[in-house]
Deep mutational scan, measured.
Amino acid sequence: HMTFVALYDYVASGETDLSFKKGERLQIVNNTEGDWWLAHSLTTGRTGYISSNYVAPSD
Rank of each mutant, 00 (worst) to 15 (best):
T3V: 15
S52L: 10
T32E: 09
Y49C: 09
L26G: 04
D35F: 10
N30T: 10
A56S: 09
H40A: 07
L26R: 00
P57T: 08
L7C: 10
A56G: 10
L26A: 00
S19C: 05
Y54Q: 08
K22P: 01
Q27E: 11
G34D: 09
E33V: 11
A39W: 03
G48Y: 03
W36Q: 10
A39Y: 04
L7V: 06
H40I: 15
L26F: 15
A12C: 05
T3N: 07
G45E: 03
L42K: 04
N53M: 14
S41P: 00
T3G: 05
G14K: 15
I50Q: 00
V29S: 06
G45T: 02
K21V: 10
Q27T: 11
R46K: 13
G34F: 06
S41W: 01
W37S: 01
T44S: 09
L26C: 04
K22N: 02
S41N: 12
L7R: 06
G23T: 01
E24N: 01
N31E: 08
G34T: 09
D35H: 11
E24F: 09
S13E: 12
H40R: 15
N53D: 12
I50Y: 01
T44F: 04
I28Q: 14
L18H: 01
V11T: 11
D17N: 11
R46G: 05
G14M: 11
N30G: 15
R46W: 08
L18N: 01
D59R: 09
M2L: 12
A39N: 01
D17T: 08
K21A: 09
T32Q: 12
S13G: 08
G14D: 09
F20P: 00
S51Q: 15
S13P: 07
Y49V: 04
M2V: 11
G34V: 08
Q27Y: 14
Y8L: 09
V29M: 12
A12Q: 05
S41G: 02
A6R: 00
Q27W: 14
S52Q: 08
D9I: 05
D59E: 12
T3M: 13
T43A: 10
T44L: 02
Q27V: 15
D35S: 11
S41Y: 08
M2Q: 13
L38F: 10
D59H: 13
L38K: 03
R46M: 11
H1E: 11
K22E: 05
A6G: 04
R46L: 12
P57N: 07
Y10S: 05
S13L: 12
D35K: 10
D35I: 10
Y54C: 14
S13Q: 14
S13V: 14
W36K: 14
T43V: 12
E33N: 14
A6D: 00
T16G: 14
G23C: 06
H40N: 07
Y10D: 00
F20T: 01
A39R: 00
V55R: 02
V5G: 00
I50K: 00
N30V: 10
N31D: 11
K21Y: 07
N30P: 06
W36L: 13
E15M: 09
M2I: 11
T32C: 11
V29R: 06
T47L: 08
V11M: 10
A6E: 00
E33T: 12
L18W: 03
D59V: 13
T16E: 12
E24H: 03
L38A: 01
F20G: 00
I50F: 01
D9A: 04
S19K: 03
Y8T: 08
Y10W: 06
L7F: 04
G23M: 02
A6C: 08
G14Y: 11
G45V: 02
M2R: 12
E33R: 12
W37K: 03
G14Q: 13
T43E: 13
F20V: 07
S58M: 15
A6F: 02
Y10C: 10
G23L: 02
Q27D: 06
G34W: 06
G23A: 03
R46F: 07
S51C: 15
L18G: 01
I50R: 00
A56P: 04
V55T: 03
V29A: 06
R46I: 06
S52V: 09
L7I: 08
T32A: 10
W37P: 01
F20R: 00
A12Y: 03
F20C: 03
T43K: 07
W36C: 14
S19F: 04
Y8P: 00
R46T: 05
S19I: 05
S51T: 06
A12S: 09
A12M: 03
N31P: 10
L7H: 02
V5D: 03
N53E: 13
S19E: 06
D9K: 01
I28L: 08
K21F: 08
F4Q: 01
S13N: 11
N53F: 14
G45P: 00
H40V: 15
L18C: 03
S13I: 14
P57F: 11
N31G: 14
Y8H: 08
D17A: 10
T32S: 12
A6T: 12
E24P: 00
G45Q: 05
G34E: 08
T3W: 14
G34C: 08
K22F: 04
G23V: 01
Y54K: 06
L18F: 07
L26E: 00
D9W: 08
L26I: 09
D9M: 08
T16C: 15
N31M: 15
V5A: 02
Y10I: 06
M2T: 11
N31T: 13
L42N: 04
A12T: 04
R25D: 04
A12I: 05
T43Y: 06
S13A: 11
L26D: 01
T3S: 07
S41I: 02
R46Y: 06
H40G: 01
G48A: 03
L18Q: 01
K22G: 02
H1L: 13
V5Q: 04
V29G: 04
A6S: 05
V11G: 04
D17C: 15
G45L: 05
L42T: 06
G14H: 13
G34Y: 07
Y8N: 06
K21P: 00
N30K: 09
R25A: 08
V55H: 03
N53S: 14
N31R: 14
E33M: 13
T3A: 06
G34A: 11
Y54V: 07
P57E: 08
S51R: 15
E24K: 01
N30I: 10
V55Y: 05
Y8Q: 09
E24Q: 02
L18Y: 02
N53T: 12
S52D: 02
